[in-house]
Design a protein around this nucleic acid. Structure first.
Ligand SMILES: NC(=O)c1ccc[n+]([C@@H]2O[C@H](COP(=O)([O-])OP(=O)(O)OC[C@H]3O[C@@H](n4cnc5c(N)ncnc54)[C@H](O)[C@@H]3O)[C@@H](O)[C@H]2O)c1
Ligand SMILES: NC(=O)c1ccc[n+]([C@@H]2O[C@H](COP(=O)([O-])OP(=O)(O)OC[C@H]3O[C@@H](n4cnc5c(N)ncnc54)[C@H](O)[C@@H]3O)[C@@H](O)[C@H]2O)c1
Lengths: 221, 221
DNA sequence: TGCGTTTTGTTCTCACGTTCACAAACTCCT
DNA sequence: AGGAGTTTGTGAACGTGAGAACAAAACGCA
């Protein structure tokens, strides 16, 4: 049964808050690295670049982990946020498409340190197979199903050309992956229950360009 | 009231809409590549992966570019959106930090095709200088000011390690750059009038992990 | 203990964003 | 020309998010 008992009350954290929790987590790690053990919402908000009222409200969705008049214990709060996000253990991840971007991603040190573990690099190009990238052997794309099964992989990263992205996504979903991070500049269609997030350089630049154009308009040189 | 006087000409487009315009632009380009010359809001919404009412409302902020009972002329609408975003001409861009990620970015073909032109690759490491990446010579970071001045650069991309990102941003702002795309996992502080957008792999993965954890919770194997 | 200080957790209000639903406007066909 | 069919553009309802403000809770100190 998927019935949620009142005691089991899975709190509903707003999406906007979920998107900020990783930022808080990183800010807390930075504070901890500086040897700071306690911080106020004001301190943490500054480090995370947000309004302190917003920060407190965000944290209140997780529970009451602060002490009035004192602030938050850095390590304790860090653990609570990590637990809420689900990165107290490492998530296995596969990367498909080991071209320019795939190489960079494979070498990205932030995976391991932030709750993820690259279990396989896959590419359709036979010329890449057996080659090592970041200490991991590149394997044929057709090994996807086996790798997902053996490692219980839930998260896949797509860094293939746009024309191939939908096919790769379909194969990922069929293999059992239910969360996809897509770097290809294309809209993926996936069945319900599968989450897709995209990272799109061109879109980000175009948003900047829009605002840049407006600045130039209102403020002649 | 709704009269557009020349002074009042700059309408206020909601930020959420601005973020979707590039998606529509890409969807329209895809349709045009398929030889499609006219499309309904339903068609375009499907291609862009959004609700058709939302699409129509978004487009209504730009003006009335459709024809009732018919739909939108693909090329005409494409031009209107490109003009609104400001990508009818190319924006000069500098990339700072030519490591793993910087190499990938330099090789990214989407810059040129989507309204941007990489005018310089900069890095602090002398070992990289004079080397060519994607046909462009890597130059010393200290050339930044000169390059920004000579090419009228408004947009900078940061792909240096996190600890160096704030310094690079400060130098960029001092040099006259007013829009920054930051790939380093750190919060940048910049003066008012400077726009910063971030691309953060770890955050995206952690958001996926959060939802993935919930799926596992509610739905036992 | 009691008082002043600090800082959290929460409530309230306003702004922004999404979606529905439909009149207006256009085409096509007879 | 007129009616049937189609699709846009937008007003209105609803939902989500941001930020100000403040009561409640903890601490320190006399
Ligand atoms: N390079 C960048 O900085 C950058 C930035 C933003 C977005 N992107 C996007 O990321 C994607 C990858 O970019 P890139 O520069 O690495 O391209 P690339 O051509 O260098 O690499 C693509 C890789 O995918 C592999 N591939 C192709 N089809 C495949 C399939 N069906 N299954 C498995 N592997 C397959 C190719 O063999 C190749 O190794 C593209 O969609 C690009 O638009 C790249
Ligand atoms: N590799 C990835 O896929 C990836 C993904 C997400 C985020 N990032 C982030 O992007 C950034 C770059 O990642 P990377 O893997 O390319 O790192 P990298 O170490 O390979 O490259 C960094 C480059 O920046 C240069 N640099 C350092 N300090 C500089 C300075 N002050 N001025 C100019 N240049 C300077 C270095 O010489 C080096 O060439 C990091 O912050 C990383 O966290 C990388």
């Amino acid at each position: 049964m998927t019935a949620r008992t009142p005691t089991d009350a899975v709190r509903d954290i707003p999406e906007a808050t979920v998107a900020r929790l990783p930022v808080y987590l990183r800010a807390l790690t930075a504070l901890a690295d500086q040897g700071i053990t306690t911080c106020s919402s004001e301190d943490l908000a500054t480090a995370a670049g947000v309004n302190s009222a917003k920060l407190r409200k965000d944290l209140s969705y997780l529970g009451s982990y602060g002490t009035r008049g004192v602030g938050y214990d850095v390590d304790y709060l860090r653990y609570q946020i990590a637990r809420e996000i689900g990165v107290t253990q490492d998530w296995p991840v596969v990367i498909v498409g080991i071209g320019n971007l795939g190489h960079a991603l494979a070498n990205f040190s932030g995976f391991r340190s932030r709750g993820f573990r690259v279990v396989a690099l896959l590419d359709a190009d036979p010329a890449l197979h057996e080659q090592q990238v970041a200490g991991i052997v590149v394997r044929p794309f057709d090994d996807l199903e086996q790798i997902v099964r053996e490692n219980d992989v839930a998260i896949g990263v797509i860094s293939v050309p746009a024309f191939a992205a939908q096919d790769v996504a379909d194969r990922m979903v069929a293999a059992g992956i239910s969360s996809i991070l897509n770097f290809a500049p294309t809209v993926l269609s996936v069945p319900p229950g599968v989450d897709v997030r995209k990272v799109d350089l061109s879109i980000e630049l175009q948003i900047l360009a829009y605002h840049e154009q407006r600045k130039a308009h209102g403020e002649p040189v």
